[in-house]
Amino acid sequence: MEKQKIKIGLVPKLIIGIILGILIGMYLPEWVGRLIVTASSLFSMFLKFVIPMMILAFVTMGIADLTQGAGKLLGITAAISYASTLIAGSVSFFVANSLFMSFMDPEALERIAKTAGISVAPYLSLSVTPILDTLAAVLLAFILGLCMSTMRGKEIGNTLYDFMKDFSAIINKVLHTIIVPFLPLYICGTFIDMTRSGKTFAILGILWKVFIIVIIMHLLYLVFAFFVAGGISKKNPLMLLKNQIPGYTTAVGTQSSAATIPVNLECAKADGISEEIRNFVVPLCANIHMAGSMITITACATAVCMMNGLPISINTVVPFIATLGIAMVASPGAPGGSIMTALPFLYMVGLGTEELQAIMIALYITQDSFGTACNVSGDNAIGLIVDAIYKKWIKE
């Protein structure tokens, strides 16, 4: 009688990767950590190369398959995503402005800022320029998808559609045979780097109250988002939250919205979102919906301003959030991408000096994984709303 092989699911693998990363970073020699970080770095390079093609393939086919109302759904999805990002950032400011001053410690931000720029160097580092950057891939996907949706069978044939369909199948194969299996290694390398450089525990030991409040805001946002989505789609919000756990966990480890797309698509499938909608909304929102990142950036900016005696108010925060909500479209694909995108706009809230921006980077990156998890989880809440709109008002 053959022994049945025990299959370990993705979530346990991700947890194992996180634990191993922390333990290796704490107890094993540096050269061991550098070997794993090197492998993780090479995987990251490959991931960055594939991500634009993944966005191009999935978003194009998602839009192209929406033969009715594709333009309307694109506008609806973008509008909901942008509104969600604006609301999340505004609420984050009000909470931070009300709570942070009561426990802020000037020495805390000074100590955590010292971790900025400290990392484990890989033995080998390669750089491969992607065929397209993220924003170009999104724009090209809009053009191709919308044109194929409206012109196919009328003004053009099926040649381009068939090519993109085959291209999408190839990218899907790459995702499931290379990217998803190696995600735990990528996560392990990330946590080795964070642990050895002091980032993993610095925020918990120094600014743990800020850290906890930001995470609570992320979780409350998700509860609110899925209750709204559940009400509109007439589905159990608690079950929807449960279905999202694999996507949330993956995002915590990878710190990348785009890298979590394959897992998030499976979560959307479990939610009962139709295939054409999930293939359209999930990759699209991975690039345009940044509610979690906005919560983190706004809260961190408020904290840094308070610690340095800089004035900050709703009058300065709202233009900052509105601008950043658009600029961060180009940020997914790499850990810390949102704060790097935000740097040119930090002057709007008084954080224009290199010293203050270094503090912002250190604060943000220690919480980036949770912000990213909030981003991608919120994507499926938007997917449920868009799917309900599509079925009720567009498809019929």
Results as ranks from 00 to 15, higher is better:
Lys7Ala: 08
Phe280Glu: 09
Phe227Asn: 07
Leu73Lys: 05
Ile365Leu: 14
Ala270Glu: 13
Leu241Arg: 10
Lys165Ser: 14
Ala259Cys: 05
Val349Arg: 04
Ala388Ser: 15
Gly69Trp: 03
Ile178Gln: 05
Val120Leu: 14
Val91Thr: 08
Val120Phe: 04
Ile80Arg: 00
Val228Lys: 02
Gly205Val: 10
Pro344Tyr: 03
Gly371Cys: 07
Ile212Ser: 13
His289Arg: 01
Gly292Thr: 04
Ile273Cys: 03
Thr260Leu: 05
Leu86His: 02
Gln4Arg: 12
Leu265Gly: 13
Pro246Asp: 09
Ala381His: 01
Thr67Gln: 14
Val263Phe: 09
Ala251Cys: 08
Glu354Ile: 12
Ile178Pro: 03
Lys269Met: 10
Leu35Glu: 14
Ala70Arg: 09
Phe226Asn: 04
Phe280Leu: 03
Ala141Glu: 02
Gly253Arg: 08
Leu124Gln: 07
Cys300Val: 14
Ile314Ala: 15
Phe49Asp: 01
Met194Cys: 07
Ile170Arg: 06
Leu240Asp: 14
Phe191Arg: 07
Tyr27Ser: 11
Leu324Gln: 09
Phe43Met: 11
Leu139Lys: 03
His176Thr: 15
Met307Tyr: 12
Leu356Lys: 13
Phe46Thr: 10
Thr159Ala: 15
Pro344Phe: 00
Gly231Glu: 07
Gly71Tyr: 01
Gly21Met: 09
Ser92Thr: 07
Gly272Ile: 04
Leu185Met: 13
Leu363Cys: 12
Gly157Leu: 04
Leu207Asn: 15
Asp387Leu: 01
Glu30Asn: 10
Thr67Leu: 00
Ile215Glu: 10
Val138Asp: 04
Gly371Leu: 06
Thr250Trp: 11
Ala116Thr: 10
Asn264Val: 11
Leu175Tyr: 00
Ile359Ser: 14
Leu99Arg: 14
Ile213Ser: 10
Lys234Asn: 12
Ala258Asp: 07
Leu175Cys: 12
Ile156Ser: 05
Ala57Cys: 01
Ala330Glu: 11
Val317Asn: 03
Ile273Arg: 09
Gly89Met: 03
Ala381Asn: 00
Glu107Trp: 07
Tyr364Pro: 01
Lys395Ile: 06
Val91Ala: 11
Phe142Asp: 13
Leu10Ala: 11
Gly230Phe: 08
